Computed example of a mutant assay.
Amino acid sequence: MTNTHQLLQQVAVARRNYLTSLAGMDESQAQWKPAPDAWNAVEITEHLFWAEQGGILGMWKTLLSIRAGTVSFEGASPNGGLPVEDIIRRTWQEKEIVPPVAAPRMGGPLGFWASALAGLQSTLEAFGELLTDEDLLIQAHPHPISGPMTFGQRLEFLRFHIDRHRGQVERLNDSFAESISVLR
Rank of each mutant, 00 (worst) to 15 (best):
Q29F: 08
G24H: 04
S21Q: 00
E46T: 08
G54H: 11
Q9V: 05
A30F: 09
W39H: 10
W50T: 11
R89D: 11
P34L: 02
T91H: 09
W92I: 02
K33Q: 15
L48P: 06
R89H: 11
E43I: 07
G58M: 06
G80K: 15
G69A: 04
Q29H: 11
A76F: 04
W60H: 07
L64Q: 15
I88V: 14
G69Q: 03
V71N: 04
G81V: 07
Q93K: 12
L82M: 06
M25K: 00
E52G: 04
G58R: 05
A30G: 09
A41C: 01
W60Q: 09
L63P: 12
I88N: 02
R89F: 07
A38S: 14
A12Q: 12
K33P: 09
G24T: 08
I88F: 05
E74F: 07
A35E: 12
Q53K: 15
V42K: 00
T62K: 09
Q10C: 00
W92E: 05
L22K: 06
A68P: 13
L82F: 01
G24R: 03
L64N: 15
D86P: 02
Q29Y: 05
P34K: 08
I66G: 12
N17G: 06
S65R: 13
S77D: 13
V13A: 11
M59N: 10
F73E: 04
Q31K: 14
I56R: 14
T45I: 02
K61H: 10
M59P: 11
